[in-house]
């Protein structure tokens, strides 16, 4: 929405960084355009009077849902690691994170 108070497109890089998603130049352009349009559409929510209305996080909120604390059988190491992209010595291999 470039004619209003918002220029959502300037934030695309920022949002992509928050979401940890690498975007190509082409994707940045395409997504910025469609996000502008969709956010403009969302603006109609601002016309609804929500004074004193409680927010709904769920359609059917349930509270204090607890189950018995029973000991189950966890995955064995092999099963837990079967989908790891890289593994060695029963561990997931990741890039170095400390200098």
């Amino acid at each position: 929405m470039k004619d209003g108070n918002f220029d959502h497109s300037v934030h695309i890089e920022n949002i992509a960084a928050l979401a940890r998603i690498y975007l190509t130049d082409q994707e940045r352009q395409d997504l910025a355009k469609s996000l502008d349009e969709i956010l403009e559409y969302f603006d109609k929510l601002k016309t609804v009077n929500v004074e004193g209305v409680e927010p709904s996080a769920h359609a059917y909120p349930l509270y204090d849902i607890l189950r018995d604390d029973e000991i189950g059988t966890p995955f064995d190491t092999k099963t837990a690691l079967q989908n790891a992209p890289r593994q060695r010595n029963n561990q997931v291999i990741v890039p170095k994170v400390v200098e």
């Binding site: 695309i12 949002i15 979401a19 975007l23 994707e27 996000l35 929510l45 601002k46 609804v48 709904s56």
Partner: peptide, 29 residues
């Protein structure tokens, strides 16, 4: 990607109230 970015945007600090919380209230209505 489009939906993750939209979701990240509406949950970000400066937009949380005007989009996400507001949408949850309209959901009640």
């Amino acid at each position: 990607k489009r939906r993750i970015l939209l979701g990240t945007y509406v949950l970000s600090n400066e937009n949380f109230e005007s989009y996400y919380l507001r949408a949850q209230k309209v959901r009640t209505l």
